[in-house]
Simulated assay, not measured.
Amino acid sequence: MDLTPYVDNLRHELAVAADAGGEEARALAERLTAPLESATRLTLLNALSAAMGEVTRELAPGSVDVRLRGLDPEFVVTPPPAAEPFEETRAPTTAPAATAPLAAHSEADDGSMARINFRLPAHLKSRAENAATAEGLSVNAWLVRAVSTALDGRERADPSSRGKDMGSRGFTGWVR
């Protein structure tokens, strides 16, 4: 989104207002327009960020992020995951493994969001940013998907495979 037309419009409006005050006011307005351009851009960016925060709250679990490219903001929209079609079952399922994924999906679909502070080593942060960019996602959306995938995998893991060496196992790569 190019902010230049909005900044130029504000500069024009300031010049029109200064014309009413005479030559001294016009000279003062001309001296003020250059320093005000940075402040104007920053104020517009803050307003856009706040607006996209409100949009994200309404769009949850999807999101809209504002990224700065040069002097101009760019919007990155991450739509909510598509709802899975509902299939009615006639006989109740008694296997606990079959009900665990349904419980996980119902928690994610209730639309509520929680905010956490997450400290990440710098080398992992840059890798996460690169991976998110490669997939066209915000870092937040990529991390939400990574945590969800890791937790879903843990719920489906075979309990008999857990042993003393559980801490030495790790996950590499990415699964869709």
Rank of each mutant, 00 (worst) to 15 (best):
E129S: 09
M52S: 10
T89G: 09
L143E: 01
A34V: 14
T133L: 12
V144D: 12
L32I: 02
A29T: 03
P79A: 07
T56I: 01
K164N: 13
R169P: 02
L45A: 01
G136T: 01
L44P: 01
L45G: 01
T149S: 14
S126M: 00
R162M: 07
R90P: 08
A83H: 11
S106W: 11
E37M: 06
P92R: 04
S38I: 08
G53A: 11
G53C: 05
S49N: 12
V144P: 03
R154A: 12
A122I: 03
T149V: 09
G62A: 01
A132L: 03
R119Y: 11
T89C: 00
A141R: 06
R69C: 11
A60E: 02
D72H: 06
E135T: 04
G53H: 05
D165L: 12
T149C: 11
S168D: 15
T43L: 15
D165C: 00
A141T: 05
R154E: 13
A47Q: 10
D109Y: 04
E58N: 14
S160K: 00
R90N: 14
D72I: 03
A141P: 08
N130P: 09
V144E: 05
G70D: 04
E54A: 13
S160Q: 12
T172P: 01
A131Q: 03
A51I: 07
V64L: 07
L59G: 02
E135F: 00
A128T: 05
F171I: 15
T78P: 00
V64P: 04
N130Y: 14
R90C: 13
K125L: 12
S106P: 05
R127G: 07
D165M: 07
S168N: 14
W142Q: 09
A132V: 01
G153V: 00
R127L: 03
L32H: 02
A82S: 02
L45W: 02
